[in-house]
Design a protein around this nucleic acid. Sequence first.
DNA 1: AACATGACAAGTT
DNA 2: AAACTTGCCATGT
Length: 111
Amino acid sequence: QELKKSNFFEDVHDVVKLIPKGRVTSYGAIASYLGITKSARVVGWAMKYSHNDKSIPAHRVVNRNGVLTGKHNFIEKKMDKLLGDEGIQIKDNQIINFKEVFWNPSNELEL
DNA sequence: AACATGACAAGTT
DNA sequence: AAACTTGCCATGT
């Protein structure tokens, strides 16, 4: 049907699924890894559109400052709680040890 | 079909 | 350094 309207979402989802538990990454990092550095916004859309797929750990994606910008979109399980359960400390909507838990696909993943 | 908007980010001023 | 501008692409109206 829609056949190849957007592989983009799929690509994003694939990367997100690879984020290790207890780590996080950013929209921009994913976009950059996929070769479209300036399309970080679409990554956000991809996440939003993936809320029906439970296998996608959307809570592990935050913005470049470690702020949980997308928390409003989490209905059932709260983003804060999901991250907290993985050992990530959050204060005031922001990840405290962001640098330490940051996972950059461009560095950690091979092409 | 045209126009606005958004879970963003980098570049310019 | 903080504020403003621009790029990007899928969706909603």
